[in-house]
C-alpha cells in the first residue's frame, strides 16, 4: 500500500475552472506544470469534464487521474481539481469558498452574464482563494472583503451616507458630461 499516505505539502489544488453551460471556459487556472501543461490539453479536459458532469448533479467525479468536485447554478459550472489521493473534503471546502465568494460578489445573482460583468472582481477573488496551488483562504467572507468591492457594487442599504452622496455626485457628473 505504499504511496497511499499523503505527502505533507501545501500544494493541494491542481486546478480551478468556471465553465458556462456549453462547456466553454470563462475562467480556468491550472497550478501543476505536470497536469495539462498546454492550452489544448486543458480544453480537451474541460470538454470531457463538462460532458461527464453537466447532466448528473453528483458533486464529485474522478477523471483523468484527478478528483474533481463541482457545483452548478443556472448557466455556470464551478470546478476544483486535486490529485486522486487528495482529501476530498479539503477540495470541497475550496469549491464552496469559490462559489460563495462569487455569489456574494454578484449579490446572489450567480449567472454567466453577471460573472462576465464583474469579471475583474471574480478574477481577483480566484487569485485570493488559491495561489499557485496553495489554498490562501477558504472563508468566503474574508475573500470578499479582500477583493475590494467597488462602492457602487455594495447594496444601497449597506452604504454609508457619505458613500451614497459620493456616488450620486459622480453619476451626475457623468450624465452632465455626455
Amino acid at each position: 500500500m505504499e504511496g497511499s499516505l499523503l505527502e505533507p505539502t501545501l500544494y493541494t489544488v491542481k486546478g480551478i475552472a468556471i465553465l458556462d453551460n456549453d462547456g466553454n471556459r470563462i475562467l480556468a487556472k491550472y497550478y501543476d506544470k505536470n497536469v495539462f501543461p498546454t492550452a489544448k490539453e486543458q480544453r480537451t479536459f474541460e470538454k470531457n469534464l463538462f460532458n461527464k458532469t453537466h447532466r448528473a448533479n453528483a458533486e464529485i467525479i474522478m477523471l483523468d487521474g484527478l478528483t474533481c468536485v463541482y457545483r452548478s447554478n443556472v448557466d455556470l459550472f464551478f470546478y476544483v481539481m486535486g490529485s486522486s489521493h487528495e482529501n476530498e473534503l479539503i477540495l470541497v471546502s475550496v469549491l464552496n469558498c469559490l462559489y460563495d465568494s462569487v455569489s456574494q460578489i454578484l449579490r446572489k445573482n450567480v449567472e454567466k452574464r453577471a460573472v462576465l460583468e464583474s469579471l475583474d472582481i471574480v478574477m481577483l477573488a480566484m487569485d485570493e482563494i488559491c495561489d499557485g496551488g496553495i489554498i490562501i483562504d477558504a472563508d468566503s467572507s474574508s475573500v470578499v472583503s479582500r477583493v475590494a468591492l467597488r462602492n457602487d457594487d455594495i447594496p444601497i442599504g449597506e452604504q454609508t451616507v457619505a458613500q451614497v452622496f459620493q456616488s450620486a455626485k459622480e453619476q451626475l457628473k457623468w450624465s452632465l458630461l455626455k
Partner: peptide, 16 residues
Amino acid sequence: SKPTLRFAAVRTFNQV
C-alpha cells in the same frame, strides 16, 4: 447525505 463524504469513505475502503 453529502456525496463527497460517501465518495471519500468508499474510495478509502477501495484502497485498503
